[in-house]
Amino acid sequence: MSVLRVAPRTAVVLTLASAAALATFTWPFFVPAHPESTARTAEAPLVFLVMLPVLVALTLAELTSGGIDSKALAMLGVLAAVNAALRPLGAGTAGIETVFFLLVLAGRVFGPGFGFLLGSTSLFASALLTAGVGPWLPFQMLCASWIGLGAGLLPARLRGRAETAVLAGYGALAAYGYGLLMNLWFWPFSVGADTQLSYVAGAPVLENLHRLALFTAVTSTFGWDTGRAITTAVAIVLAGPAVLAALRRAARRAAFGAPVAFAAASDRPTELTAGVRRDGAAGAGAHRVQ
């Protein structure tokens, strides 16, 4: 099920913004060799640093422009709080990352649009709580959002063990991808220009990829990224089924997308309020619980 309907226009905006945002990560591969080009100068990374927050804001605004349901909004806030509370559990311990696990599961249950929003809000709330706002934040938010979006786009029919296995595999892949993208972003900033691990402007893409692979291997693959992939996959395998059940139960109780029927006040004279009645699973579910 999908909590947040993604209209065709929103999908187009999401695709365009993602394409432009991908360039803010991968620009070292495409920088031309001419010294007079704008992208060679120190301004290019700064332009992208300014551009990406705007792109993220645009995408988030577009996703919520259809009028987000208050139940979906409250769910978003609460899950982001849980994610933000989970994040410091792993910080400081090399490679133990606890954010992606719930993000993948929630994206799976509540759909791609919700997953995208959850990725951004989780990392933003966590940055505010532990005061980690910096130029890296929009990039982290976007990467996490892509992970949530991808989890929502996995084939819907899977259930049971196959679902857990697919989700665990996706979680591990997403953890590696997140590490690689963040490394790619940090690469030009951390090494500077003139070492043998720096990117070479105008060089073939393969050579720069080789250098990036070396940089990643030297700095993070064996410690952070592998640890992150393992913790995410193991957490999904161990707690995935139970958490999925809890999330699905909440989704059924919330009855997202249940039609709201407005009845004239005279039809139901016993009700004091204006006669707003919610049909569908919410009422039925509540009665069943009682």
Binding site: L73, A74, L76, G77, V78, A80, A81, L117, A125
Partner: peptide, 30 residues
């Protein structure tokens, strides 16, 4: 103050800002 900054977000981001405010207030309750 990040909480006051969240109040100043433009109207189009109001929903996302509300979600973040909810997250910030729920986290201590956890």
């Amino acid at each position: 103050n990040p909480k006051r900054l969240l109040k100043a977000v433009p109207g189009a981001l109001y929903a996302v800002g509300t979600a973040v405010v909810v997250a910030l207030s729920v986290a201590p309750q956890l």
